[in-house]
Amino acid sequence: MADLDARTIVSRAQIEGARFKVRPPARLSQGPIGAHLGAGSGTSVEFQEFRDYQPGDDLRRVDWNVYARSDSLVVRLYHIEVSPVVEVLLDASASMGLYSGKSGAATFLAAFLASATRQAEGRPVLVLDRERISGGRIEPTLCAVPFTSPGDPDAASRWPRGTGRPLRYLISDLLFPVSMGRYISDLGRDAAGLVTIQLLSQSERDPRLSGGVRLVDAEDPGRTKDLRLDRSVLKRYSERLAAHLDSIDEAAVRARAAIVRIEVPDVVRSVDRLRDLTVPPLLERGVVETA
């Protein structure tokens, strides 16, 4: 059977995403008026607190009953009702496209989160290769992601940022030689919340290689390493991978980011399988909830 078509993946992810909605942090600070209560004051019906009247306050907010009882002018403040901005940062580097299972899962997750964001009356923004894409352009863009970009260790600092503090989702394999503590910290610095979804393919988790191999970096073919792979080399790889994942977990804890690690086969031949591989972990970690 041939690999899955991106268009099929995206359309199915949209449908699946409509059954869920992203689950934001307890209070979002900013965002356009919407369904979620923001940290600031606003025009929702949910009372927040009283405050002394200050010149310029809207006289309609003055609590005249309190004035009648205490002869002091106080105004009633209500929570502001905001709609969350959700940034989906999709790593489209060549390493993500090395295995069709991993690239398919990444595409599915991006479309799924965009759809679930809309379900939560939020505004999804897809961040891809230093470009911010929003609205109806998200899905068509996802249908044509080439996954051929060169690796960029400084991507976290260079990603274009919007105004405010969005809820940020990173979809990546995080297999690049940078300090994960700094990388994740940079990503979460201006975000209301950060969820890191790490995709690992089966061959990355458990490489089945043997004999003399010239390892070529998927993101930089000029970087190679000739190795004769035996048990000792493979064992050492497993140890180094485990240490790298630990550093990611540690960085996530420090940055108060959620980490969801999903392992996918090298090749996935059905969208159902993609859904089964990706959605349950998100639900389990509270990243999304049923709409």
């Binding site: 290689l209 003399g212 010239r214």
Partner: peptide
């Protein structure tokens, strides 16, 4: 086949153990 090419991710994770001969 002595050194067949194989594209991978995370080249930095691959390292020969000590005392391992490249050839």
């Amino acid at each position: 086949q002595r050194y067949r090419k194989r594209s991978i991710t995370g080249l930095f994770l691959w390292q020969a153990p000590k005392g391992w001969h490249e050839g």
